[in-house]
């Protein structure tokens, strides 16, 4: 019950932001997801971020209290994403496992 309540509060009156990133294949999208997921948003930062992969698309959904905090988070995510893609371009493709 508490989880449902928290989820409802979470959405109400919050800023939302969605981003879809296409990758050549689902393998690359999953690698990017696992590279970008481990570092959590700062606690008590008034922001949350959900990453998921569907097919070859990496999707990110933000929910934030303030535009200022949202901008910082989205900006740093895009910077990190660029570095991951650059790394894949230079040191890929992934070996078959």
């Amino acid at each position: 019950m508490a989880a449902v309540e928290a989820e409802t509060n979470h959405e109400r009156g919050k800023l939302g932001f969605s981003l879809d990133v296409p990758f050549p294949s689902s393998l690359e999208a999953s690698i990017a997801l696992r590279s970008l997921s481990p570092d959590k948003e700062p606690r008590r930062g008034g922001i949350s971020k959900q990453l998921s992969v569907s097919g070859s698309t990496l999707s990110v959904r933000w929910s934030a209290d303030e535009a200022r905090i949202l901008r910082v988070s989205v900006n740093s995510f895009l910077v990190h994403l660029s570095l991951v893609i650059e790394t894949m371009d230079m040191f890929g493709p992934a070996v078959s496992q």
Binding site: I31, A32, R34, S35, L36, P38, D39, H80, L83, V84, T87, M88, F91, G92, P93, A94, V95, Q97
Partner: peptide
Amino acid sequence: LVTVALVARTVAQLWG
């Protein structure tokens, strides 16, 4: 730290 960890995680996955 994050910058370096991102590249390390990515190549670890690319190279298996």
